[in-house]
């Protein structure tokens, strides 16, 4: 009696046929290609300099150790200074944290105003904002140097934070506008009837409801700003250069022998923050980068 239920009848739905094997082989080969640079980075950084000199970048590290990591963090030279990447790391933190907070604060309020408090011309500003996000940065670089100079923040941390807040605005505003527009209007109307105003509704109703989109925005901004090079070079000032700029200086400085294991360790250290965020957050990261393409 029970036997009829236990053994399934007919072909198995997911039988491993030749086409499946080809499918998986292609996927695996592609995966190997994508993973290879990561492997080279990690393997090289764990080698000692003798093994690096022997060549063969794909070889497994024989005497694995974190010496190169420590050197990259603590004593690697950028130009004349040999203080390692740690300086750039802290500068990147000092740039990223306030930039993320400021840009998200501005963009969430923008999105909220554009969804519920439209005023004359607000849609025009929004359209310009979206079109503006396609303008090459080079077009606006120089005038922005003048503007930040006149504001007295050129070559300072506030200067680069200001720039990141500007250029993060289009995508973040789009993100928040679409999110708020999808919330039920009744919520807003009920709060209005109860006498809540612009800020009351924003802080007491909208903000608590926008945790998921806040997470998406934070991930998008942290990775974007951490990875920035151009704005850091120009607007942060030499003493505030972020980690990406320092990495370039360590790797492409011409003095002395090239220590590829230290360079690769420095590369991993620079990529560690966005990579960690990426592998932890998964779907949220995808939602953020797809926000500009998939209209919601």
């Amino acid at each position: 009696m029970t036997k009829a239920i236990v053994t399934p009848r007919g072909a198995k739905p997911n039988r491993i046929g030749p086409s499946r094997i080809i499918l998986y082989s292609i996927l695996v080969v592609a995966a190997v290609y994508y993973l290879l640079p990561l492997y080279v980075m990690v393997a090289t950084s764990l080698k000692d300099l003798d093994q690096v000199r022997e060549g063969n970048i794909f070889a497994w590290p024989l005497r694995a150790g974190f010496d190169a990591w420590i050197k990259a963090w603590d004593t690697a030279c950028t130009g004349l200074y040999c203080e390692g990447l740690k300086v750039g790391f802290w500068k990147s933190v000092q740039i990223t944290v306030p930039s993320v907070l400021v840009s998200i604060a501005i963009a969430s309020i923008n999105g909220y105003a554009l969804s519920y408090w439209r005023f004359r011309g607000s849609e025009v500003f929004f359209t310009i904002l979206i079109i503006g996000s396609f303008i090459p940065y080079q077009v606006m670089l120089y005038p922005l140097v003048i503007i930040t100079r006149e504001l007295g923040i050129f070559g300072t941390l506030p200067g680069v934070i200001f720039i990141h807040s500007i250029f993060g605005m289009p995508i973040l505003t789009l993100l928040f506008r679409n999110y708020f527009a999808a919330l039920p209007v009744e919520l807003f109307k009920a709060a209005r009837v109860d006498g809540a105003g612009f800020w009351g509704i924003f802080f007491q109703i909208m903000l608590p409801m926008s945790i998921p989109i806040l997470v998406v925005a934070i991930i998008l901004q942290v990775t974007g700003i951490w990875n920035d090079f151009l704005f850091g070079v120009i607007f942060a000032g030499t003493q505030n250069w972020p980690m990406t700029v320092q990495l370039n200086n360590i790797v492409n400085s011409t003095q002395g022998v090239k220590e590829h294991n230290v360079n690769m360790a420095a590369t991993i250290l620079t990529g560690l923050v966005p990579l960690t965020i990426y592998f932890i957050s998964g779907r949220y990261f995808v939602r953020g980068i797809a926000a500009g393409a998939v209209k919601g």
Partner: peptide, 30 residues
């Protein structure tokens, strides 16, 4: 996740890794 992870990295990191892999001591030597 494997196909997308490089997108989370900066162009600086990408450039440095490939500079090393494409140098004479890199893939060619291997």
């Amino acid at each position: 996740s494997i196909y997308l992870y490089p997108f989370a990295l900066s162009f600086v990191v990408t450039g440095v890794v490939w500079q090393w892999m494409l140098s004479p001591a890199g893939i060619q030597d291997a």
